[in-house]
Design a binder for these strands. Structure first.
Length: 581
RNA sequence: GCCCCGGUGGUGAAAUGGAUAUCAUCGCUGCCUUCGAAGCAGUUGUUCUAGGUUCGAAUCCUGGCCGGGGCACCA
């Protein structure tokens, strides 16, 4: 509907001024200016026309439109009031997912996210990653793109050997079952134990020996030594078993799994090829590197180009070696148009370098690779360090939040705890966690204070869920009173609160579509919150069931549409609603 | 030394170059005898700095100050 007005405006621009322009309507700052507005300055300036005159003449032209009940101007602003019947009718009909806008150029997009190491359980940082990855995938899908969700598991390397070696030295007679531990936590404990072993070794001077043992283990793994492989499989199996549960809890899902252990050698050919073509350089000690362009990356301390190392001096592979190959594999295997990596901002430079190297190799798809970068989740005292065990564990966070959420529900509703209440607590807890992580811009560093935990008031998931539940309760009460609102009639005399809610609903699909275009899930989160706020204000200020029948029915329809839209927005964010808080 | 990111009320955040910079939280004041107070209404308090571009700058450009991340054979 807003699109139709934009089209009418575009036609008027052509017919009156001979200007080709695609206008975008915005909301007015205040309803006294009308419902939506357009600023003439950019188009007027480009065409050499005085902006206020353009606004005036367009107003005359548009006033004939059957969609528009009033047009006015305010300097260069063209202010439009939409015919109420059209406004409310569209808002109700196109609510929820039925209003979604689909792209005319659907793409095949891979979203790689989570990408855990198999030496420790998932923590809050992974949760931020996973929640962003899922939301981004959902939003791209809603906009009509084909999305392949991929997980690259870092299941090999020296850090994995650390857990394995610590297990051999301190716990080889134990299993997760024997200790009653969640298996990924059991392996994570071994990783922490290694750190302790290392510290102890440094004190009694045996650290070189320990390091040699570790390197030997990695060597044995690469040589395919049966005992080492068996141990690796056993411990990784435990980790996967644990991951499975955590990922199910948080709703992280994948269409494709990549394992570094099966990929790490693949990059060697690409490196050799680059070397042969003079794109990569062999360093004096034998390592292979890509010299990063100085205009983009600057220089290193001795004035030469920065180096992006692709192969170790001893010929073994690096993460970068594997990365080159995996990038190529993704495009070939899935005929991708676009490849997105959801990875923390500490790797900004890594990805910028990787994409530069891929471009230098002549892969035209290198331009379609992008790094969805996000900031760390820190504790009040600083960064989380898994080696030192100072992390907010994903499973602990969840169970802690469920307790708090259940307690809050019990307290506020006065209900006693039962199985059903616990399930509501789970949904509320997840909504609180996910919304907390999705609402700020991704690049902000989030500080999470375990002592304060998460709020259920203010700009929170609970605020949105409560808006939904309030509507549901109201609709239920209406049904019980035998009130029906299926036949829609829109009384002329509705208030600004009704109008604001309808406008908010109308804008929603465009916001979701734009969020997909710019790949910003936070835009959807902010919009859901804004809609919820408009709803709460409406609820507090306007009676529904006690209004005259015509107004009552219109409002019930509007509220039902609002509930559908809030639920859809939250669904895109990976958040479930509660019919009852 | 180099590269990247940031600096907005006390605190945490928002704002395709566009109308009076928006929210939350904290503080203070009200509203459960009308559909659920996890809510609503009111109130105090904000764009690091010096220039520049522009009809118009929190936003773009240059310098400065402050903070965070990264700089290779880790991921």
């Amino acid at each position: 509907m807003l699109g139709q007005i934009e089209t009418a405006l575009s036609k008027a621009l052509t017919s009156v001024f001979g200007v080709a322009h695609k206008p975008t309507l915005t909301r007015t700052p205040n309803l006294k200016f009308g419902d939506v507005a357009w600023n003439c300055i950019p188009a007027a300036k480009a065409a050499g026309i005085e902006p206020a005159r353009m606004a005036t003449e367009l107003a005359t032209e548009l006033s004939a439109s059957p969609l528009i009940s009033a047009v006015s101007t305010q300097g260069p602003y063209l202010n439009i009031t939409v015919v109420s019947k059209v406004l409310f009718g569209t808002a109700v009909t196109l609510s929820g997912a039925s209003g979604r806008i689909q792209t005319e150029q659907p793409k095949r997009v891979m979203v790689e996210y989570l990408s855990p190491n198999t030496n420790k359980p998932l923590h809050l940082g992974h949760v931020r990653n996973g929640v962003l990855g899922m939301a981004l995938s959902n939003i791209l899908h809603a906009a009509g793109h084909t999305v392949i969700k991929a997980d690259l598991v870092n299941d090999r390397g020296i850090h994995i050997c650390k857990s394995m070696l610590a297990y051999l030295k301190t716990g080889a007679n134990m299993t997760p079952e024997s200790l009653g531990k969640k298996p990924d936590h059991f392996v994570g404990d071994m990783y922490v134990k290694y750190d302790k072993l290392e510290k102890a070794a440094k004190e009694d001077g045996t650290d070189k020996k320990l390091e040699a043992e570790l390197t030997l283990m990695l060597q044995k793994w690469e040589d395919g030594d049966p005992d080492t492989i068996a141990l690796w499989e056993k411990m990784n199996g435990w980790v996967y078993e644990g991951f499975e549960k955590t990922m199910e809890t948080y709703g992280f899902r994948f269409d494709k799994m990549y394992y570094e252990s099966g990929l790490y050698k693949l990059g060697k050919d690409i490196v050799e090829d680059g070397l042969a073509r003079g794109i990569f350089t062999r360093l004096p000690d034998g390592a292979v590197a890509y010299e990063l362009p100085i205009d983009q990356f600057g220089t290193n301390p001795d004035g030469g180009p920065q180096l992006f190392t692709l192969l170790r001096a001893n010929g073994t592979c690096l993460y970068t070696t594997q990365d080159l190959a995996t990038a190529k594999l993704k495009f070939e295997e899935f005929a991708l148009d676009r490849s997105i990596y959801v990875v923390g901002d500490e790797q900004d430079q890594h990805f910028k370098s990787l994409f530069s190297a891929l471009g230098a190799l002549g892969y035209d798809w290198a331009l379609q690779c992008s790094h969805f970068s996000y900031g760390m989740v820190e504790l009040p005292e600083g960064r989380m360090k898994s080696r030192e065990g100072t992390v907010v564990d994903a499973d602990d966070l969840y169970s802690d939040m469920v307790k708090r959420a259940s307690a809050a529900i019990s307290q506020k509703s006065g209900e006693q705890d039962d199985g059903q209440l616990a399930r509501r607590g789970e949904t509320l807890a997840l909504a609180a966690i996910k919304f907390f992580l999705l609402y700020p811009a991704p690049k902000t560093t989030i500080v999470y204070d375990p002592a304060k935990s998460l709020d259920f008031e203010g700009e929170t998931g609970a605020y949105c869920l409560y808006a939904y539940a309030r509507i549901k309760k109201l609709l239920q009460t209406a049904r019980m009173q035998g009130i029906s609102w299926s036949s829609l009639r829109y009384p002329a005399s509705l208030t600004d609160d009704d109008r604001l809610l309808a406008l908010e609903l109308l804008e929603f699909p465009q916001t979701v579509f734009n969020a997909a275009e710019v790949e910003k899930p936070a835009h959807v989160a902010r919009k859901v919150l804004k809609l919820s706020r408009t709803l709460h204000r409406f609820y507090a200020n306007q009676p529904v069931l006690t209004s005259p029948p015509a107004v009552r029915e219109a409002r019930l329809a509007l509220l039902e549409a609002t509930a559908k839209t809030i639920a859809w927005g939250l669904e895109l964010l990976g958040i479930d609603v509660l019919e009852q808080m």
